[in-house]
Amino acid sequence: MKNLLLLLILANVLYFMWGRYATQDPQPGVAVVSERDLGPPLEFLAAGDNEATTSVGAVLGSGDPSDLAAVVGRACVTIGPFSVRSDADTAVLEYAAAGMQTAVRSMRTEVFIGQSVQVTDVASRAAGREMVRVLERRGLDGPFVVGNDEIGYSIALGIFSDAANAERVELQARSAGFVVETTPMTRNQDVFFVDVGLPPGRGAGAIVERYGEDRVALRDAATCPR
């Protein structure tokens, strides 16, 4: 019995040694996989209509410009106001010839004319004539008496679109000892705006440079042509 037990132990030791040295490391090769192991087959979706599909080339600058407009949105500028319709029409023709969509809008608004400078507190027309002579000797050009006995008299010194000129005339009249009043003058008239739709990738820098920042509305402040 003792010998049998020793033989079993020896057999286990030999089996252990054989398994340790006989096992080889995995070697590279080709694995054969069944299609059943890959899961369900893939489904390919058909592309939609060409009109509804945005061109990647358009985004990169090589596709239809209308595709890019759909992606990035429409950019517009509004130029104005123009006090004369012909000036607005000239701008429309110029940008339309460059391939841009344009439109003219008009609106009735109060337009600033200039600063009216007057000498007030004139007692009578005769007194006004004497004051005019004093002002002319002070170097003021063309003052004249306005008004009547009912509403009173004043001496008009002019209407000036340039505020600096209005201030200069006012100081000259005050230096003569007269009371001077300067008031803004406005009138209602039609003004015109030109709405321009910019092509994709086209900026408004040239338009702003030409008309000035105060006459060009951008982004949300602009109106797109219809």
Rank of each mutant, 00 (worst) to 15 (best):
A96P: 00
S161K: 08
G205R: 08
R74I: 15
G177V: 02
M131C: 00
D37I: 11
L68T: 11
T186Y: 12
G203Q: 07
L93I: 07
D64N: 11
A123K: 11
S124G: 06
L4K: 15
D121A: 14
F44N: 13
D214S: 13
G128Q: 05
Y95M: 11
A127C: 00
N148S: 12
T78Q: 13
Q189T: 12
R215T: 05
D87P: 01
A206L: 09
I159A: 06
R108Q: 10
G48A: 10
L4D: 07
A11N: 08
Q101K: 12
Q27H: 08
L140Q: 05
R108F: 06
T223R: 12
A123I: 08
P41N: 04
V179W: 03
T182V: 13
G177N: 02
D162I: 07
D162M: 06
G142T: 11
M107L: 14
E181G: 00
F16L: 05
D214I: 07
A69V: 09
D89L: 13
T78D: 02
I113F: 08
R74Q: 15
G19Y: 07
R202Y: 05
E43C: 02
A164L: 04
G114L: 00
A58K: 04
G57P: 05
L38W: 09
R133C: 00
I79K: 01
A103V: 00
G147V: 09
V111K: 12
L6T: 11
P26H: 10
Y153D: 08
N148V: 05
A173Q: 01
D190A: 12
F192W: 15
Y153C: 02
E136A: 09
S154V: 01
G203S: 08
A163W: 01
G99P: 04
S83A: 11
P26S: 14
A69S: 14
G57H: 07
G63R: 01
E136D: 04
A156F: 06
V59N: 13
A173H: 03
G57V: 02
E94K: 13
S86M: 09
D67Q: 08
D190L: 12
A103F: 04
